[in-house]
Simulated scan of single mutants.
Amino acid sequence: MLSVALHLGIVIVLFAGFKWSPSIPESMNVQLNAPLQDEAVPEEEIVNAATVDEAKVQEQIEAIQAQERARQEEIAELERRAQAAKKQREAEQQRQRELEAQQRAERERLAREQQEAEKKRQEAEKAAEAAAERRKREEEAARKAEAERKKREEEARRLEEERKRKEEEARQRAERERQLQEQLAEERKARAAARSRQIQSEVGKYTALIRSTIQRNLITDPSMRGKECKVRIRVASSGFVISVNTISGDTAVCQATQNAVFKAGTLPVSSDPEIFKEMETIDLTVQPEFN
């Protein structure tokens, strides 16, 4: 559009110059028209005037041509500038496009970086949340483990105290049992001693009764004076005489003792089994008695 306008201007200027160039200046027109007036102009002057006018016309033409060349040069300069401006504008547009492309690429890069950063932030948040949750679980597990450890320690301490208490109770029971056993043993010993004394007393009493029974049934003679016989008598629980055996002593006294025992048939014995057991077999020494 700028080039078309410049060419249109040039055409208009050339047309104006063409219209103006054949025109004769007013001063020259006056001189040329002078012969039409009343005074006559010499031919030499007319020639000189025509020469002068032609020179001026030529000068004007050259001036117009110079102006035309100047305008052409100006138009060329304008076209050159327009081309340069166009190239510069195109270069600027290219730079603008490149800049926009760079900016778009930069925005896209920033968007990607922001997305990546957001993704990393979200991942970091998730990781932090997971770590916090894991730490919470670990802390809870540690708390439970500590509570369980304390519980086990408390249970162990309670069991140990219970064990010691039971041991102490067992020791005390054992001590009481020992003391009781000792007391019972002493009591049994005392009862046994008392029973033994009682049995021996009873045995002695029944032995005396048996000896008295034998003495009542013993047939003696003076030859037996100072003599004795030791016999072993076995009796039943009823007192029935089972056997009489001589252990040692005078034969006559022993024979008389045996006869006396068999004559009695039944000897006095205790109905108490323990006392009878001591009297079941009796070793008895018999000495004839004389009044």
Results as ranks from 00 to 15, higher is better:
Arg97Trp: 04
Arg89Asn: 03
Glu98Gly: 02
Gln83Lys: 13
Arg149Thr: 03
Arg158Ser: 09
Lys86Ser: 15
Ala190Glu: 15
Glu182Leu: 09
Arg81His: 09
Gln103Cys: 02
Arg171Ser: 04
Ala105Ile: 01
Lys126Met: 08
Ala141Gln: 14
Arg165Ala: 08
Arg143Thr: 08
Glu153Asn: 02
Ala128Gly: 04
Lys144Asn: 06
Glu161Gly: 03
Leu159Val: 05
Arg95Asp: 07
Arg121Gln: 12
Lys164Ser: 09
Lys164Leu: 11
Glu146Asn: 04
Arg188Ser: 03
Arg158Gln: 10
Glu162Val: 01
Gln181Lys: 13
Lys164His: 04
Glu90Arg: 06
Ala190Asp: 06
Gln88Tyr: 08
Glu140Ala: 11
Lys120Cys: 00
Glu187Ile: 00
Arg178Asp: 03
Arg163Phe: 04
Glu98Leu: 02
Ala124Arg: 15
Gln115Met: 09
Arg157Ser: 09
Ala124Phe: 03
Gln181Arg: 14
Glu186Phe: 03
Glu167Arg: 04
Gln103Arg: 15
Glu168Ser: 01
Arg97Tyr: 00
Lys120Asn: 12
Ala101Asp: 02
Gln179Trp: 00
Glu106Val: 07
Ala131Arg: 15
Gln179Glu: 15
Arg165Ser: 01
Ala145Met: 05
Lys166Asp: 01
Ala117Pro: 00
Ala130Phe: 07
Arg163Ala: 11
Gln115Glu: 15
Lys166Gly: 00
Ala145Gly: 06
Arg134Ala: 15
Ala185Met: 01
Ala132Ser: 09
Ala132Ile: 04
Lys126Phe: 05
Gln115Cys: 00
Arg107Gln: 09
Ala145Glu: 14
Arg152Tyr: 00
Arg178Tyr: 06
Gln88Val: 14
Ala190Val: 10
Ala147Ser: 14
Gln93Met: 12
Glu77Lys: 10
Lys86Gln: 15
Lys166Ser: 03
